[in-house]
Amino acid sequence: MSVLEIRNLHKGFGSLVVLDGVDLSVEKGDVVTILGPSGSGKTTLLRCINFLETADSGTMIFDETSYDLARMTRADKSRIRMRTGFVFQNYNLFRNKTALQNVTEGLIVARKMEKKKADEIGMRMLAKVGMAERADYYPSQLSGGQQQRVAIARALASDPEIIYFDEPTSALDPELISEVLAVMRNLAEEGMTMIVVTHEMGFAKNVSSKSIFMEGGKIVEQGPSKEFFTNPRMERTREFLRMEEDRETASSLNAGKNS
């Protein structure tokens, strides 16, 4: 059953075309990674799907209801957002709230949940990402990796149908990346539906069920991750994968040199 479907999504900023007719279908339990060079439109795609940007045109089918992405009402946006989670590149934890309050804020304020019940869910989610013992810390007292794990707990709190990850490890120091990827791998194994914009080829290859390569606002190639990595059909995909591989080799060599 498809959780989310996007049809013919278009988005431009002024005269610049960023998304040029994107179609996307996500089944329950899918882990979809979106790869592509910077400027290819992958982040904008996620932001349009969660209404942080307003699409110029396009259709979204969520929970068997069809929506016009260019004309979303406030009520529809809020209703859908309460059933999805979003993880930002730079965490965006509420800076005036503790880790626990970050997780429960949406439950208490948006969903009008009782504080006691919200706290219970909050602690469970923090435990899930290994942050329970830091529940009373403020974001400024946490490392980047810890902040991102709290942000994942916040996204999980609403028991979402799908979680969007916008380059969740790109702002992290190399040694902190693995703790966040481990949490994401656990979620994938539990069957959480996820769309992940990333440059982590290992995650795309080994964890995600489906990979998409985007360039110039269009999907160039998509398919089951195994096939996508072992036998890409398009020349442009092959070239991109080779470049990413070189980059990773280079950075691991560098890491080896430093240690």
Partner: peptide
């Protein structure tokens, strides 16, 4: 930062709620 507002929207809060609480 604008990200604070966006994070508020993403957990389903509305504009007045985000302004008052975040």
């Amino acid at each position: 930062p604008a990200g604070q507002l966006e994070a508020g929207f993403c957990v389903g809060m509305n504009y007045p709620q985000i302004m008052m609480r975040i």
